[in-house]
Structure formats: C-alpha cells, structure tokens
C-alpha cells in the first residue's frame, strides 16, 4: 500500500513537473522567437546573426526544459 502510494506520488510528480517545465520552455522559446522575428524584420540585413543567436538561446532554454524532463523520467521509472 505504502509502496503504491509512493509510486503514485512519483508518477504524479513526474507528469506535473514535465508539464510545468514544458510550459516554461514553450513561453521562453515563444518569446525568443517573437523578438527574434521582430528584430530581423526591423533589420533584415542582420537576420543571419539573429538566427544563429536565436538557435543558441533556444537550445539553452530547451536544455533546461530537457533537464526537467530527464528528472521527470527518473521519477517515473523509480
């Protein structure tokens, strides 16, 4: 019974944690993309640099989100 409860808690935590982290990453990348688009529309000649920087920043944000997904996975397979 107690073990089942612990498992339930772990699954719950994994699901909720993954969901919240996805919300955060989605907001972050969305904001990043919107401002990158805006700035490259304002300065089309700098769009190459902006794109590269955007990809790097997106990767960093995504990395954090993936950390939490890995943590969620660790919880889920506990």
């Amino acid at each position: 019974m107690e073990q089942n409860l612990a498992k339930l808690g772990a699954y719950l935590a994994a699901g909720i944690g993954a969901g919240i982290s996805v919300i955060g990453a989605g907001l972050g990348i969305g904001k990043l993309a919107s401002s990158a688009l805006e700035s490259s529309a304002r300065q089309p000649e700098a769009s190459g640099d902006i794109r590269t920087t955007m990809i790097i920043a997106a990767a960093l944000i995504e990395g954090v989100a993936l950390f939490s997904c890995v943590i969620a996975m660790l919880l889920a397979i506990k």
Partner: peptide
C-alpha cells in the same frame, strides 16, 4: 553536462 543531456534528450525524445 548540459551538452550531454541536451543531445541525448533531443535524440531520444
């Protein structure tokens, strides 16, 4: 570590 997890998680996900 971030490089490790990022690549792994992206490819696995």
């Amino acid at each position: 570590f971030a490089l490790t997890v990022r690549l792994f998680a992206n490819m696995t996900a």
